[in-house]
Design a protein around this nucleic acid. Structure first.
Lengths: 178, 178
DNA sequence: ATTCTCCTATCTATCAGTAGGTAGATAAAT
DNA sequence: ATTTATCTACCTACTGATAGATAGGAGAAT
């Protein structure tokens, strides 16, 4: 451990909890206890819970699109495969929900900055997918529908698979996509 | 209002809150305040929160399948249309998430009885859809995939549409289904 | 070199608010 | 008399948040 980097550890712990049980599932005290500091010290790094939630969504989104890469880069078919795989990895490697999927489900009860960051994630997903589909020669209107459909199917597949405790259901649900 | 039927009103209020912000979004105090009784009185009707959560999921599931009807009844194509419309109605009429969709997203943090009732809802969905698809001449293996895909797409479409505050996104996401 | 000042990251201690839950009393209906 | 549905009054636990103290390091001024 070269650098503990407390702020990063806070985000790691909060993300895991949030992706398990939503916005109310992480608390300053629990995070502090897991790191071995006091809850007041967590407030030093993230002044309020909504600031932490917002940072959480922004970091998650950033990491997600870093994995996906440029929508104008690789072959469209390859990019779509990568897109589906990114969701699959979130579910199977981490064993957790998509952070913004959970936040999206409870969006109406989230503090505005967190809701905004969550919306930004989906907007960015729609945009990325629209571009890829257009490169496949799809008309803009169809590309919009196809993009919305893919996001929906993948987020829903994660919920279904986790609810039933059966990761194979994820693959079954998204088999037609890639 | 012939009968206030407190238990039913408790469920109504809890359901609305849960479908907005999840399991932690409803509380005995808030429910009591909205009805005009004391929180202790809510405990009379539902001894614990997990009992209330379980009743919530069971009632929701019951109502849902009452609307859908017998999977061996009407024409398969008509049944599937009805199925998609049922999700659409939950979103557009109530302006709320699917209760079990929200619960599904936070399944790992739910009390076991609530998690069980949530799983039961999805299991029943899978079963209903499998039957309808088989009636369309689909092989069992394909019917399973098609069923999982439909549930996933619809739950995800609700999340996406609500997150973006745009009900049209729901229709866009599920356009290919019906 | 030493001292002064500032910043970082933590601490202790505390607050008001809310959570779910319980015991026991009460009034009305059966 | 018993049951039903409510009440009052309370408990413990936890929430996010704040004020103020502290220790240690970095850089500049003396």
């Amino acid at each position: 451990m070269a650098k503990p980097d407390t702020a990063e550890r806070i985000l790691d712990i909060a993300e895991k909890a949030a992706r398990t049980g939503g916005y109310n599932a992480f608390s300053f005290r629990e995070i502090a206890a897991e790191i071995g500091i006091k809850s007041a010290s967590v407030h030093y790094h993230f002044p309020t819970k909504e600031a932490l939630g917002e940072a959480l969504a922004e970091r998650y989104s950033g990491n997600f699109f870093k994995v996906l890469g440029d929508p104008q880069g690789a072959e469209p078919a390859e990019l779509l495969k990568r897109y589906v795989a990114a969701y699959g990895a979130a579910l199977k490697q981490d064993g957790l929900m998509c952070l913004c999927g959970v936040f999206g489900a409870e969006i109406a009860d989230l503090p505005p900055p967190v809701a905004r960051a969550t919306r930004a994630f989906f907007e960015r997903n729609l945009d990325w997918l629209r571009q890829v589909h257009c490169r496949q020669g799809m008309a803009p209107e169809q590309a919009e529908k196809a993009a919305a459909h893919m996001i929906a199917a993948l987020e829903g597949a994660m919920i279904l698979a986790r609810a039933m405790g059966d990761a194979a259901l994820f693959d079954a649900a998204v088999a037609r996509l890639s």
